[in-house]
Design a protein around this nucleic acid. Sequence first.
DNA 1: CATGAATGAGGGTTCATTCAT
DNA 2: TATGAATGAACCCTCATTCAT
Lengths: 203, 203, 203, 203
Amino acid sequence: MTGLRADARRNREKILAAARELFREQGTAVALDDIARRAEVGIGTLYRRFPDRDALITDVALEGFETGLAALEAARAAGGGPVAVLDELFRRVVEQRDRLVMPLIGGPVVRDPRVRGLQRTILGALEEVLAEGRAAGVMRADVTAFDLIGAAAMACRPMPHLPREAAGALAARHVAVYLHGLRPQGALALPDMVEVGEYLGLD
Amino acid sequence: MTGLRADARRNREKILAAARELFREQGTAVALDDIARRAEVGIGTLYRRFPDRDALITDVALEGFETGLAALEAARAAGGGPVAVLDELFRRVVEQRDRLVMPLIGGPVVRDPRVRGLQRTILGALEEVLAEGRAAGVMRADVTAFDLIGAAAMACRPMPHLPREAAGALAARHVAVYLHGLRPQGALALPDMVEVGEYLGLD
Amino acid sequence: MTGLRADARRNREKILAAARELFREQGTAVALDDIARRAEVGIGTLYRRFPDRDALITDVALEGFETGLAALEAARAAGGGPVAVLDELFRRVVEQRDRLVMPLIGGPVVRDPRVRGLQRTILGALEEVLAEGRAAGVMRADVTAFDLIGAAAMACRPMPHLPREAAGALAARHVAVYLHGLRPQGALALPDMVEVGEYLGLD
Amino acid sequence: MTGLRADARRNREKILAAARELFREQGTAVALDDIARRAEVGIGTLYRRFPDRDALITDVALEGFETGLAALEAARAAGGGPVAVLDELFRRVVEQRDRLVMPLIGGPVVRDPRVRGLQRTILGALEEVLAEGRAAGVMRADVTAFDLIGAAAMACRPMPHLPREAAGALAARHVAVYLHGLRPQGALALPDMVEVGEYLGLD
DNA sequence: CATGAATGAGGGTTCATTCAT
DNA sequence: TATGAATGAACCCTCATTCAT
């Protein structure tokens, strides 16, 4: 990744960008030939860099998680209370949902230790925000970091039958209502949480 | 559908059930051979009943919309105010999300007039519930029927990397927070809604 | 193999014949497309009948062993002493070496239980011939059935750089000298035999 | 070959050794990448030294023929009558059959004039041995140098399904019987020899 | 000179679709 | 009508070969 020749690194980036786009548009089963074509490289180049489909999916997902973590850190750095942090975080999540392909991805990704590390870091930071919110009495006590991750995943899912900006607007509105619902006033208890640890391979 | 011989109708049902399962498990691009095999009919039989993949997808989606409409009608019939209706509706939606494959489906479905009719009916009924809720001061004025459909779609999406019951719990909790967020108290304005009419082919 | 539809069985035979020819001409790595083309069937038909290259190789080899066993039985049926039997056997082997692709084949074939059964039968029959020859004092005591199989394998090997009839003549002459060498008179001891049992998976 | 820089010559040798091994293990169709990898040089280096696959095959074959000629000369130098010479020659052939890849090789090799020269030399020397043997009455009159080359070729062929030492023992035993068969006593006439001249490109 | 990145043709395999039984 | 055999286009992947570093 770092020791690559200049042209090789450039190609790697082009391939990842093309994969990101096509995964969103057509799912991760899209033809690798198409990815190579959109990236304007030969199919052999794609295979040299990513030995199989999973390697490509994993790296796209990895960048997604990195983007997610960066969004969270930026939201915290922007200051404001925990409510403002989540508002800002989800604003960025919806805005950058093209890069957050994360929720598209099935099982294999989870196995990658780099992904697991990022997931752990993100979960930890979210827990801190939630703890602040609970302490300040502005967030329900029963919502967990897993719930927030799940909400982000749902909001990022592509809706292929909707035009892009409509899907964006719908996601933004959905998230706004959801965040509004995080306030504790008059809330009924949530259904029980089930063990989601293995989502992270944290067990 | 109705004028079919008994065994032919039985085959049709077996095929639809198999398709529903496999669409959820593997997406709508799953091999038709696999569907025929799981349905325990020959591939030729599948083709006799459903001339192409889209016909099968359409019929599965149609059943999904019918299930959704039935859930809505049952929720209204159960009585209670508009809040109770939405609670009950979404409870059923999450519970029966296996059949609500609707949100899995891309563009082609929209073209079918039967689907459009069902969508119109569902949207109309949802608007009525929302109107009641607004009149009673228990629902935000700026949430639309489209938002509710969108929320249902997001909640129904399969999360293939999560074990089934974990995904169900996450969806139920998400929906609970979302519905809580529908209350008007202290709500900030939602982002603008964009025209989603073509989602229904209503334009 | 037996329960096949008439046209399906016809295709199966055409594919096996084409494979036999091309394996000899170009080795077992020959393009399967080429086999399908020579057999005048679609590539899909080939794959329906033989799920992978090994399945095809195995079946070709199987027919080879059946041919070999038939040659041995015919040679014995023709009567004459053990020397005449081996003469006749090897005459047939060289003559039909196109079908005796057996020696072309590497490891995977051995695993097939049908192949192992044939190998056992052939070895047993060869031992009987050798025993008769030894009893009559016309065959070296130290030659084994494995040696005879090995000799047949060597003689059947294609020599792609030689024109077909030249290779045949060379093989026939080689075999003649070899058989002549089987006589006990004045023979020096053979080098030790090494365990070849696993060739048959007999261990 | 001679005017090469020291490191270049070292690379050349490493490539030839790797090719010899892999040709025997997997045939001459083995991937050139694999040869470069086993030789621990870049693929570009291999191509600089050997412009195409045939050049590499030719050089490996050339070394094989040189090895064969050396074995023949050593056998003659060891003294003893013609029978002893052939015994010693074939002992060496079986022993060094790894280097005698010659019989693996198809048509292209023949074209190289250096190979043809070696073949002619070897054939000539073999004829001399046979002539001595015939004169001494210890060798059949109808066996030719071509037959001996053919016997060597058959004995050198790899038998990939047999463990290495078993294949060696089988070859040694086969050769012993064959050489025993070369004696004239009581021999029946051999089948006619066909013109094999073009094997050498001597026509 | 050595290296290894890039290329794309070609072979392996799957699967949607047609059609003979 | 039900079946499953046949077909071939399209996708996956490898590897010979060229060329920039």
